[in-house]
Design a protein around this nucleic acid. Sequence first.
DNA 1: GGAGATATAG
DNA 2: CTATATCTCC
Lengths: 264, 264
Amino acid sequence: MGTTLKIASWNINSVRARTPIVERLLKEEAPDILCLQETKAHNDVFPASFFREHGYVHQQLNGQKMHHGVAIVSKVPLHEPGAHDWQDNGEARHVGARLDCGIRIENVYVPAGGDIPDRTVNVKFGQKLDFVERMTRWSEKLREPTLIVGDFNIAPLECDVWSHKALLDVVSHTPVEVDALTRLQQAHDWIDIGRTFVPAPERCFTWWSYRSPDWTKNDRGRRLDHMWASPALRDVLASHQVLEPCRAWTRPSDHVPLICEIQV
Amino acid sequence: MGTTLKIASWNINSVRARTPIVERLLKEEAPDILCLQETKAHNDVFPASFFREHGYVHQQLNGQKMHHGVAIVSKVPLHEPGAHDWQDNGEARHVGARLDCGIRIENVYVPAGGDIPDRTVNVKFGQKLDFVERMTRWSEKLREPTLIVGDFNIAPLECDVWSHKALLDVVSHTPVEVDALTRLQQAHDWIDIGRTFVPAPERCFTWWSYRSPDWTKNDRGRRLDHMWASPALRDVLASHQVLEPCRAWTRPSDHVPLICEIQV
DNA sequence: GGAGATATAG
DNA sequence: CTATATCTCC
């Protein structure tokens, strides 16, 4: 008889500023593993004891001072931790670990890519595409059953944004980004868990900008956060949720958590 | 038969950040007039309607963008408002007004004076002494019954600080500052209302630094805030309080309010 | 809109 | 320690 492992992923937009809502998620959902992106905290100031007190005694941190930063906190053991710096630029955008069951969890925060979708005038856009390309190279060589989760900062499908037309030239949904993400997906034949449980063209958003106070009314969301699984894990995928209500919590992140369950 | 006028003075250390405790003071003490120092708010962003809704419809503001800033808010009319810029440097450190009874209220925020008590290496210290000197010149010419209140940033008596010895070389209690303040007091024969009701050497502090979290235990306070009256007002001074408990309120100012009552 | 860093002031 | 302003980033 197998057990169910509950895995959450959340771009928290500063873990220190949001311990109240993190605590609420832990109490209400009690995931076994929580993958955080945009922790904005150097490992020295990461609220390790806060998570420890809630039972998340296993922690893999890859933080930096001001920006980015990722972390895995877990009730179950984490082995063979490793953080890739695919672009060798010192940015803390990945951390991974292996679970007892042999599955690897990879937690990634893809660069946002700046405002202008043109690599010639906006180096950040080029760096984003390069980052995805390097993930693709890494992905091709993967041989282990893997779950990769995080903020990919790309909404690939037309139904992954509130208006495909309006966002065709907006960073996160441009064809060149979507192509790059598609190549990444094909490199390991990754299963898009979200769209397995919420088939296109059904509405599915994970992010709403802070800049529109009436985000609920306009619902100008995007699906920027993802959970992907190795093909070998197809049969153990048990459930998937997008916790949209979290966007309305007090002092929210602009992203909401994703949760999936696997049978191990 | 006369009425009693209740006048409060408080260095609030940002009026916007502290509306909760200001509201609490207004509810618990209901002064007729409240003089604020360190409002840290340009007049455009001063919470005028907040005070208006609590009955303080008469307001004289002298604010600036980031630092300093003073204000008088009152339930009773304020006439002939005037703000002195004694040093002609654009700093908002004074505002005054006349009451119906003819008494003038002068609300002042004396410069803190920096860290080093030496005018040759610390211009701010020189500016502080100069400020008090210019107040002295102004004071000499006063002919009207006046109440001057505010944060004078000087603790004149030995018993006005937790340790006279320890603070002899600390800005706020150095002999040169005390001398300057003494000259200011003599220039109009000002009555120190605080020490009229709490005679020296009784303990009387109005400020405790934020920098010691255990301020209650150490009690390293200083009497930096004052209420002074013209000699002509001697017989109308009815009461005086230092509201020490306010230092323990939620998100406190480092200063506590002073309240006095006069029979008019 | 909201976060962190930095600088400045107390 | 506790504020505000400015800047950068998302």
